[in-house]
Design a protein around this nucleic acid. Structure first.
Length: 561
RNA sequence: GCGCCUGUAGCUCAGGGGACAGAGCAGCGGACUUCUAAUCCGUCGGUCGGGGGUUCGAUUCCCUCCAGGCGCGCCA
């Protein structure tokens, strides 16, 4: 295309436009399939530079466009001057062969090769159960991490455990109150204490078992011990709930390690050496305003105790020291105000702030039959992730979390999530996979196939079918399905690089829809043998793509429903 | 007051400098003696929150206003 532009310019068709004035050629996939497989607005740009009518320019360009044959069926000028390219369906059918050959690895690319990326997500305080908002972060973080892996990045998934600092001291105080209450003392929780009933229950149990051992301790030590005990229990619950949600981490990083290893003091020293800190009102400040923050931030309080922020700076320094090229933090919307100071801290440490990418997941509104479910953190009444997963199932929960862009506030309706009906997109996608699996079983029963392929096989790789006769796939629904299957690797890369895992959820729904259409329009079993085999291969390739895409999303691909 | 996110069909949301703005659900009308009807096909439905600006072209970019959410601690 660029060549055509140059030739047209040389021939004087562009009003004497110099080569360096030629616009860059950008091909894009039009929104409307009828507008071709690829489209370019080069004629608009060239027309503007040369002050010619874009439509005429486009037609001139067409004359200079070498019909280099390569899988292009036709090229035409449309509308006010778009040039649309139509691919030869033969090219699209090749994708079936691709998928069948690659199988489990179809969709994997190496665009991220050599890049180490860390994704930190959930990082809930180990002081209570995960709630629904953590669930969204868990789904988004884990799907993003998987997409990055598929795109060839070397990925590490990390959970940061806030097991130190002021809040843990307060946690210990609340636990102590609960402990003593369990022993019959008349003491009250502080208003800003930890009101969760789970903690009261935990302390009741502990009091029954080991009242004496803890009571002998001085209060400060007892609070510390209680906090450590409760955190260990809560963290194990968190780990278990996440596992049940299909989320696993490579690294669980405790904040206390930073304190124990003196990492905070070291990073403060480093910042001081770099001239980024100053003292005022008896506190140590980091000059984050130099890097675009609203105000400078305190690192060490008047009382000599470092802030949470100081620990976080040390933590991010630690991440970068581990050699990650890119660090991605997935945070809830209530932490968005924290981004500028964290980026500023990166800059103050001498790192490129762009090495830190923060993905914000917006609030989740929990609904039941369209009505908000009342949640009060104060009263310790909140719907936990475990409860949601138990009620609606892991697949439905993950799918619904990943259906919307992370930027968008999410309404999560419990009734809708577990309803097995048209209103619930989860089953639509899974059903397509189950339907194909069933089709393959039927094919085996009808002796068209020797046996159905195992989930991790493909027909071609297992030698159950040859890749001949693909040119028989000519029905519009067949061609459309091929087109979608061909998009998969790029969709994965886009989901990874734009940090938008929800793209893949949409993609899965598109593929499922295209398959259902194809299945309705095109009879597979019982058509003439070459066509029958070709359609089985197409169905099988679809199965593989659905399976791979769902795997990235952490949603199961059932063989029966 | 300042900052971030959002405002698109009755509902829930995609999309995004271009060609008539898309999907699901809901509504209406069709399709099962044959591979799963948890499906498919058709149809109804929108001045893309309001107003300015930039552009050949804005729903998309900029400004401003309005509305909702979330933040703005020497809490974490």
């Amino acid at each position: 295309m660029a060549e055509a532009l140059r030739r047209a310019a040389a021939a004087g068709e562009l009003g004497g436009l110099a080569p360096e004035e030629l616009p860059p050629v950008a091909l894009e996939v039009p929104r409307e399939r009828a507008h071709g497989d690829w489209s370019t607005n080069a004629a608009f740009l060239a027309g503007r530079a040369a002050r010619r009518d874009p439509r005429q320019v486009a037609e001139a360009l067409l004359r200079f466009l070498a019909a280099e044959g390569c899988y292009l069926q036709r090229v035409e000028v449309a509308g006010p001057g778009f040039i649309n390219f139509y691919l030869d369906p033969a090219w699209l059918r090749e994708v079936v062969r691709d998928v069948e050959r690659s199988g489990l690895s179809y969709g994997r690319t190496e665009v991220g090769r050599g890049q180490r990326v860390q994704v930190e997500f959930v990082s809930a305080n180990p002081t209570g159960p995960l709630h629904i908002g953590h669930g969204r972060g868990a789904a988004v973080g884990s799907a993003l991490a998987s997409a990055l892996e598929w795109a060839g990045y070397e990925v590490s998934r990390e959970f940061y455990i806030n097991d130190a600092g002021n809040q843990i001291a307060r946690f210990g105080e609340s636990l102590d109150v609960r402990f003593r209450q369990a022993l019959g003392e008349k003491v009250e929780l502080p208003a800003d204490g930890y009101h969760g009933q789970d903690l009261a229950e935990l302390m009741r149990e502990l009091a029954e078992r080991e009242a004496d051992r803890y009571l002998r301790l001085p209060p400060a030590e007892r609070q510390e011990k209680l906090a450590a005990y409760a955190m260990a229990v809560k963290l194990e619950e968190i780990r278990r709930d996440l596992a049940a949600f299909g989320v696993a981490f490579d690294v669980w990083f405790p904040e206390s390690r930073l304190h124990a290893e003196g990492a905070i003091q070291r990073v403060l020293e480093l910042l001081r050496e770099r001239g980024m800190t100053y003292e005022q009102d008896g506190a140590l400040w980091l000059a984050t305003t130099r890097f675009g923050d609203d105000k400078d931030r305190v690192l060490v309080r008047q009382n000599g105790i470092p802030t949470y922020f100081a620990a976080d700076v040390a933590y991010h320094h630690n991440k970068m020291q581990r050699g990650f090229h890119q660090v991605i933090d997935v945070w809830g919307a209530d932490h968005h105000g924290y981004i500028p100071r964290m980026k500023a801290a990166m800059a103050a440490l001498g790192y490129d702030p762009a090495a830190l990418d923060v993905v914000i997941t917006q609030m989740v509104n929990l609904l039941r039959e369209g009505k908000p479910v009342v949640m009060s953190k104060r009263a310790g009444q909140l719907v936990t992730l475990a409860e949601v997963v138990a009620e609606v199932g892991r697949d439905a929960a993950r799918f619904l979390f990943l259906l919307r862009s992370a930027d968008s506030h999410l309404d999560f309706d419990l009734e809708l999530a577990k309803r097995q009906s048209d209103e619930n997109p989860v089953y639509y996608a899974q059903y397509a996979h189950a339907r194909i699996s069933s089709l393959l079983r039927q094919a085996a029963e009808a002796r068209v196939l020797e046996r159905p392929p195992a989930q991790e096989e493909t027909l071609l790789r297992a030698g159950l079918a040859a890749d001949e006769g693909l040119d028989r796939l000519t029905h519009p629904t067949e061609v459309e399905l091929c087109r979608l299957l061909a998009d998969f690797p790029e969709e994965v890369v886009l989901a990874a690089q734009r940090r938008e895992p929800h793209r893949l959820t949409r993609y899965v729904l598109d593929v499922a829809a295209a398959f259902h259409s194809f299945y309705t329009e095109c009879r597979v079993l019982g058509s003439e043998p070459p066509l029958e085999k070709a359609r089985l291969l197409l169905a099988d390739a679809t199965r593989v793509v659905l399976r791979n895409a769902l795997q990235i999303l952490g949603v199961r691909a059932p063989e029966r429903m």
